[in-house]
Design a protein around this nucleic acid. Sequence first.
DNA 1: TCATGAAATTACCAAATGTTAATTAACACC
DNA 2: GGTGTTAATTAACATTTGGTAATTTCATGA
Lengths: 191, 191
Amino acid sequence: MDKLIKFINRYVTLEKEDLDVILPFFKRNILLKDKFIIKKEQVVTDYYFIASGGLIIYDIKDEIQFTRYFAFENEFIGDISKIRNRGRSDSYIKAIEDTELYSISYKDMETLYDRFPLWQKFGRLIWEDSFASVLYGIHNFQSLTAKERYLDLLKRSDLIFRVPLKDLSLFLGVTPQSLSRIRKEISIAKE
Amino acid sequence: MDKLIKFINRYVTLEKEDLDVILPFFKRNILLKDKFIIKKEQVVTDYYFIASGGLIIYDIKDEIQFTRYFAFENEFIGDISKIRNRGRSDSYIKAIEDTELYSISYKDMETLYDRFPLWQKFGRLIWEDSFASVLYGIHNFQSLTAKERYLDLLKRSDLIFRVPLKDLSLFLGVTPQSLSRIRKEISIAKE
DNA sequence: TCATGAAATTACCAAATGTTAATTAACACC
DNA sequence: GGTGTTAATTAACATTTGGTAATTTCATGA
């Protein structure tokens, strides 16, 4: 649980006794590559902390895949809009690498929130961060072309080395063919 | 402060005594149409609750405006990525209607968070909601065309009646000319 | 009321992206 | 090693969107 503890400590400084109460609520999970932690229409109950590895979140409509998001080590995720009322997932979550997860139920989180004010603070900070990072993504879509979004991603992450072009392109909001074309243009421009 | 109190009550049930401590930290502000609450490069210090009216948040780069967001009554907003470290705003925030605001400083919010666990919970829920709503926007960009995004917006909001096409189009990530064209196509299709 | 300027519309052409389909490359399985 | 499956690339064409510019509409203030 080392990674999880470090992650928590980046946000709040909990007493050891408190941490000893909180941590047991997390369940460790090893998810092999291409296995699912949740499928569409399943009831959403848990948050996940990713200690290592990576996940893809995607939807399938009319046989077409839409990549919503990728999540990697040291990310804390949860489908907030569904989890609150035990709604059903509108996407699949699959491991794209062998992944070590720590899951905790919505119910347990709420209990801990009420019991430990610092844990509530942890929750607040997590969601503030999540909000800020998605906001950044929105601004990208509003103001950049597909090629610019791709170049921005290159600068900020190692995503292209970890996920297939097909999934990446849909995440960027373009077709795989388009991204392939963009990639070619860039490689030509470099010469 | 009625609207603000109602808004808070939607999230948490605070004791009257607590509320009496918290509310005075908010400063009431009437912002006339086209007046700014913050301009680019100014240091960001405050959160805002909008009791009535509306705001536009936009950036200007190379003389071109980029609409980031519109905020209306009963929204609680703050530039989380800047406010934490007293960073400078990368956008302008302007009233698009006469607007009644309640502002509170980052510092005061932090103080109140620590003092009232329920206020911390309020903060967490606010940002969870904000995250969920921005996430919805991202999915739109990832999977819809400009026309589909416009139609989706029509269904969900009265934005088109409250903001000029120019600002709205940039919010949707297209040029004003494009949106004008789209609007025409839709009106033709209706006949 | 008129004059002014900004917003909205329209048109035309260029650039970007989507669609369909064929080809090649990579990779897992036998 | 060969076979089959999927991903990635490429190409040709269609559609969407952008950029520039002209025209019209609309709101505002003199």
